[in-house]
Design a protein around this nucleic acid. Structure first.
Lengths: 303, 303
DNA sequence: CTCAATCGGTAGTTTTGCTACATGGAGATC
DNA sequence: GATCTCCATGTAGCAAAACTACCGATTGAG
């Protein structure tokens, strides 16, 4: 039951005679006859019967023929899918990101790809940077949106390469009725030494980043509230329970009662990058992420 | 792109390593490796990549794999269908009959087969006996329900064999208010010499049969109305426009205002037979037709 | 660091598939 | 009705392929 033999049967059905089928397949009639005999033995059925000078297909041959046509069609689809995959019209990818990376970069990028690359299937998983990176070489992930992080692989890492997506400053989120709310800039080390701080959980990149920034500014923030979710943090700010710093661009929706104020230079920044396996080449996904990142950088306040 | 190669890819996916796949297929690992290399060349795609000590399938391999699984399933269905056809669980047949044969024998037989042989597909075509017979050896028909007819092949015809289904008398159909309606038997040659006759079109078997019967009874019927359809004929009878003879059993539904009366012996009879290609062996269809015929004969008046 | 295991390449053998030619059978032609 | 023509198929020989046996390279495990 090989495809070659099934195609010989199909050719015989289409062309009527063994000789015509042989011509169409660039074979001799004898070869066609022999292969059909093998197919009949494999199928344990009589496929041909004499009819006049030629042959005709038996009912059993027609049963087989229906399936042979379906198989040929499916094989053609397989070839088409392989070609489509080669030039990027179809594909699958697993992407990871931390929450604000998913919301700010991955989701908009996938929304574009849904229209421009309808054949692609994407799966999104939430991981922090240090969890995501080892999953790339293991092929559990195809792309990870990561943040500036001590675990980041060196630029010449043999298996992972990094593509910058967005470089954005953190800003101070204050209650709208806060004394500093009217200021053009805020200097945490001077203005917010006594503030209550809201911070993401230890182990996240933002946590480390805040502490480092405050340390460099020469003071120890009083950490009072903890939530991993920027939305929840801002709700706490709006309720007047403290202040926090959040990335400027990845949080487009501010709740009422919260204002963002730039931080006096050098403001802490976070750098978002796309990590992919080295040598993977350009993908529609990476292109879309870079486009979204560039648009966000352009839209936001420069610096 | 041969099935053998696709199955090797499937085995590799199932068993994980080239060695395990080779064992499952009773091959050496080298053969598996070589065939996968050929498949990769045919698919114009990289199918394997090193992963630790073993290999793993690439995305392109998974694309191909999905189709390979579908093809393997379809091939299994083909084998099952061939087996089912061998032992008669599935099949196709074209059947011909004249109108009352279709209504009285073919339709009831197919109704049974629909339950007992759900895998069979039947096509019914209406032909008169002389049209149907040559279509049997040409394989345009697989079975024809035919009537006693001069063109009937001899019992030792080399390509066609005949199986008796039903031997039924014609009876006289009279308006219920006809003077003869109360009689136990009617003798057309004596009682109906002056009646208006309703008859099927020239060229049908019933037409010849009526004329022959009347001729033997020694009179010439006055043919007034013509219709091929027994239902239409009986409507004319009910309207008092004439009399006709119809086969007893194949017309179970009598309209109001019509009575059937037996004809004095020797009553004209018609013999229904199933014609099939010689050497075709028993088929569910032929069995069902014989059963229906036997039941009709048993139910109707014997003789 | 050594060992064990896996995969892939090469040479040689076996199996399969194809061609060339001949045979037999069934319309078509005269 | 004899011959001719066309078609399918069997046989022998040859070419292509698929497979085995063996070896080397690579990599993870102990």
């Amino acid at each position: 039951m090989e495809i070659k033999r099934l195609n010989i049967l199909r050719a015989l059905d289409q062309h009527g005679t063994v000789i015509a089928a042989a011509q169409a397949l660039h074979l001799t009639p004898s070869a066609v006859s022999q292969q059909l005999a093998v197919l009949a033995r494999e199928a344990d059925a009589v496929l041909l019967e004499k009819h006049g000078r030629g042959v005709r297909l038996t009912p059993a041959a027609h049963v087989l023929l229906g399936h042979a046509d379906a198989i040929a069609t499916r094989l053609e689809q397989a070839r088409a899918d392989l070609a489509a995959q080669r030039d990027g019209r179809i594909g699958r990818a697993r992407i990871s990101g931390f929450p604000s990376g998913i919301a700010g970069l991955i989701a908009p990028a996938l929304a574009r790809l849904k229209h421009t690359h309808p054949g692609w299937r994407f799966e999104v998983v939430q991981y922090e940077t240090e969890q995501a990176l080892p999953l790339l070489p293991a092929r559990e992930l195809d792309l990870a949106v990561v943040m500036t992080h001590p675990d980041l692989p060196a630029p010449d890492h043999p298996r992972i390469e990094l593509h910058p997506l967005l470089d954005e400053p953190f800003e101070i989120a204050l209650p709208a009725d806060h004394p500093l709310a009217g200021r053009a800039e805020v200097t945490p080390g001077a203005d917010l030494v006594d503030a209550d701080w809201i911070i993401t959980a230890p182990g996240t990149a933002c946590h480390d980043l805040l502490l480092t920034a405050c340390h460099q500014a020469g003071f120890q923030p009083r950490l009072v509230h903890t939530s991993t979710d920027f939305g929840a943090q801002l709700a706490l700010v709006a309720a007047g329970l403290g202040v926090t710093i959040i990335p400027r661009l990845a949080q487009p929706e501010l709740p009422r009662g919260v204002v963002l104020r730039p931080i006096t230079a050098p403001a802490p920044r976070r750098r978002l990058m796309a990590a992919v396996r080295r040598g993977q080449g350009p993908t529609p996904l990476l292109d879309a992420l870079r486009t979204v990142g560039a648009e966000l950088a352009e839209r936001g306040a420069p610096g």
